[in-house]
Design a binder for these strands. Sequence first.
RNA 1: GGGCGCGUAGCUCAGUGGUAGAGCAUCUGCCUUUUAAGCAGAGGGUCGGUGGUUCGAGACCACCCGCGCUCACCA
Length: 503
Amino acid sequence: MLENQSNEKELNTLIARRFEELEEIKNKNVRPYEYEYDVDSYSMQIKNDYEKFEGKTVKIAGRLMAIRKMGKASFAQIQDKEGRIQIYLRRDEIGEQYAIFKLLDIGDLIGVEGFVFKTKTGEISVHTKSLTLLAKSLRPIPIAKEVVDENGNKKIYDQFADKELRYRQRYVDLVVNPEIKDVFVKRSKIITSMRNFLDNNDFLEVDTPILQSLYGGAAAKPFVTHHNALDIKLYMRIADELYLKRLIVGGFDRVYEISKDFRNEGMDRTHNPEFTMMEMYVAYKDYNWMMYFVEKMVNHIAIEVLGSAKVNIEGTEIDFSPPWNRISMVDEIKKETNIDVLSVGKEDLAEDVKKRGVKLTGGESKGKLIDELFSIVVEPKLIQPTFVMDYPVELSPLAKKHRTREGLVERFEGFVLGREICNAFSELNDPIDQKERFEEQSRFIEEGDEEAHQIDEDYVRALEYGMPPTAGLGVGIDRLVMLFTNQSSIRDVILFPQMRPEK
RNA sequence: GGGCGCGUAGCUCAGUGGUAGAGCAUCUGCCUUUUAAGCAGAGGGUCGGUGGUUCGAGACCACCCGCGCUCACCA
């Protein structure tokens, strides 16, 4: 039986033993994989409200996480969605079921009906009257023993700690390290809260294509795929921007999309090849309106998900309540370095950036140099929520030129703890200007910039029909979740992060 | 892609050139309020891979594979 079940010989003896137990269970005419169990109580509910439950019969279910056999009686711990609770079993009370219990392993899923009591040592437990096997586990789960000391501190022994295995087998990680569930619960709440906020502000949630014959809306390398019937090359989207703005042209005044985007780039603690973005566009508004909207929205999410607008993140108290600081990118650089990046020559600027320890290839545009300088001298100081306004035009081919300042566009990014959490601008709705920007980008492509924007003729055509003044916003959801849950790696806020395939 | 680090039993780890180890898990026996239950015993390893140095390599060297952290770009 085992030959086709497992080629992992190091596990064979442990797994083989469980197959034997499975056979013994079947021989006792017990169903090893049940159809349902009518759960009526949960571990923490019982523990937190013991007075109410004492002596009452409950039906609980979960995974066996510890077994302490003492001959004709046993203790065990089961783990359900809320936590762990001890059960107590006696042979003289449950008879044949006790023989079944002896064939169980850590990891098996069981249902227990019994009454709630406290042991001599004070542990709230369920005194088993009836035991039901719900699913036999054939593969040993990594054991994590946990002890709670008198101060309530949890100590865990033999933790399942290999990060690679934790990401690859997240199902095991969630069982053995259940505290990580909190991150994913918060993630879900953040998205729900954001969606509700947008819906309540008259935004319409829409879906735009993931497979696109022309990608755009950001500077990034795409994933390429192929459609067989049409025999065409298709790209997976790198951003939603251009389609959402087509909808603004069409007369939907407030639209948003919470979507997966895909960028074929390196992976590290802030980059996963697929990631979640929220993009939204609103007609007849500009980036000033958008700043008010963003600070209200993030404040709302913080209160709803974290319970307060003042949040302790990495030991620093961050206050999300409006208004956030607003600073000008170039003015702030001038304040810090006395360099006027708009009037200084590109060569002098490159020299200065190099002096600050940045390796340059020589091909950087002036806008890129300004961005570098800003990253070094200003970004680390942006601890409390801050909007950085007005970026060099070269960096923003889809943003509208600043109404008064030459060389800049009306764009802002929100920063918290030195990290960018959103990007927004007054959208470029002048089709002639847009076409010129695209043409400039295509020159970058010819010069070898793989991430420069392609010319999207249909998008220009849409603008030529007329797009109202529009404000647009993009929020990297994974990064926002990292911030709100105090996680330093994107892999810890994505349930199944991208991994190299197992051999 | 560069730099640093890691890879030994199912899990967590020790082992600094001389016969592969510990705790937990597993198996056998005892044990009816235990709790990292306990007591007595047993099994379990291609030390990531390949080559080299050496009388002798888990350890030293080279290369390869995998992973983590970090730097660069971004969201």
